[in-house]
Design a protein around this nucleic acid. Structure first.
Lengths: 123, 123
DNA sequence: CAGCATCCCTCATGATACTG
DNA sequence: CAGTATCATGAGGGATGCTG
């Protein structure tokens, strides 16, 4: 098994489990993108601005090992791959949806450069 | 040079905002702990196993700047401080609760050492 | 197009010590 | 007890190149 933890985790704490399984920087975005069905890596790469194909592939691998996504590889040329959320993966959608909603509700605290400005009703 | 602050953040993506504001390793735990009311740093330190007071203080500072907690410092000796969730901070509780529930539901995928084992080979 | 290996930088965090 | 500065580290992930 490739996925090992050096530090023993606290199994009583669901947040810890969650962070291990969905903690990667891009996993929420990946889950979001795959919400609407099968996705190819190139699609995901285009959709998720700022990520490289290396990280996406890596995180997709982790998610596959964790049982969050399934992978289908077609033996064609050029190759084609498709990823899809498993039921477990889909069960994360509501959480990520909440996160997204919460974030959007507070996006007014940031300026166009993405810097935190706090209350910006000053004019 | 080549490595600049990668963030211009995507304000259209709530997940990004969320990760900026609540992305620290210990912030969910802190929020959880403060759910039941005022908390002193020493309490939080005892409650959150594995964290050092340095990180907790740091993340509490960030959370205060972000408007997630308020801090009350008593000019006593020895000093006393109390942290409390703001309304914004409390609005995160449902999300963290969901994360916790989700994680607990899948904690069976890990063994006692916190290593991922996939299918739980029962008892 | 998909996947992996390599190099190496950055950042958050851990450890420790000091101040008030 | 609370808070901060300093130093060390290691894991994540950005950039690039090769393979089929």
């Amino acid at each position: 098994m490739k996925y090992e933890r050096k530090i023993p985790i606290d199994l009583d704490c669901g947040v810890t489990i969650y962070q291990i399984m969905v903690g990667g920087k891009w996993k929420p975005y990946l889950i979001n993108c795959m919400n609407c069905g099968l996705k190819r890596p190139s699609e995901l790469l285009r959709a998720i601005h700022g990520a490289t194909k290396r990280v996406l592939a890596q995180q997709l691998n982790e998610m596959e090992q964790m049982g969050l996504v399934t992978k289908r590889l077609y033996p064609e040329m050029p190759p084609r791959a498709e990823y899809e959320l498993t039921e477990t993966g889909r069960s994360l959608i509501p959480i990520i949806r909440l996160m997204d909603e919460w974030g959007l509700k507070h996006s007014c605290l940031f300026n166009e450069k993405g810097q935190y400005v706090g209350q910006n009703h000053g004019g």
